[in-house]
Simulated scan of single mutants.
Amino acid sequence: MISGCPPGLPSVDATTPAVLVLPGPVRPDEVPRLCDDVRALLETTAAGPGAGVVVCDVAALGPGGLGAVDVLARLALAARRAGGRIRLRDPAPGLRDLLALVGLRFEFEGQAEEREPAGGVQEAVETGDPPL
C-alpha cells in the first residue's frame, strides 16, 4: 500500500525560521539590499513560531575574511534594529574562528543557545564586601 505525501514541502513546518542564502563573496554595494532582505523576512515571520529569527546560510562565503565579518555584523545589526536576530548556517571553521577572534558572537544552527550559568554572576555588591 502506498500512502500519499502530505501537501507542502517535507522539510518545512510552522516552526522553521526564514532562510537567507548569502551568495559567495558579498560586494559592499550588495550589503544594503541584504539588510533590507533580513528586515523583510523578519516582518513576514513576525507572527509565527519562528518569529524573530532569520537563518543566514553562509556556506558560500567560505573561510571568509574581514569583508564577510563586516557583512555579518551589518546583517545582525539590521536584524536587531528590526526586533530580531540572525542565526548562521554552515559557516566554514575559518569563518567561525575569525568571528570569535574579532569578538562577534553569533548563534549557529544546531548549537544550543548559550546561557549564563546559574549563580555565576554577582548581581549586587553588599556593603561591607571586601574589594576584589
Results as ranks from 00 to 15, higher is better:
I2S: 12
G4P: 07
G4D: 08
G8R: 06
G8A: 09
L9A: 12
P10L: 10
P10F: 06
S11L: 09
T15G: 10
P17R: 01
L20A: 06
V21Y: 03
P23D: 12
G24P: 11
P25H: 08
P25M: 05
E30W: 01
C35E: 15
V38S: 02
R39Y: 01
L42P: 00
E43L: 10
E43I: 05
T44A: 11
A46D: 08
G50P: 03
G50I: 00
G50S: 13
A51D: 00
V54A: 01
V55S: 01
V58I: 06
V58N: 00
G62C: 04
G62W: 02
P63E: 12
P63W: 05
G64S: 06
G64Y: 01
G65M: 07
G67I: 03
G67R: 12
G67V: 09
A68T: 08
A68S: 15
V69G: 06
D70Y: 11
D70R: 14
V71N: 00
L72K: 02
A73H: 10
L75E: 04
L77K: 12
L77A: 15
L77P: 00
A79T: 09
A79R: 02
A82Q: 07
G83D: 06
G83I: 07
G83Y: 07
R85V: 13
L88V: 08
D90K: 07
D90C: 10
P91R: 03
G94P: 05
R96L: 14
D97F: 10
D97Q: 15
D97E: 15
L101E: 12
L104E: 06
R105M: 09
E107A: 14
E109W: 09
G110C: 07
Q111F: 13
A118L: 15
G119K: 04
G119N: 10
V121H: 11
Q122H: 12
E126V: 14
G128M: 07
D129V: 13
P130W: 11
P131V: 12
L132V: 14
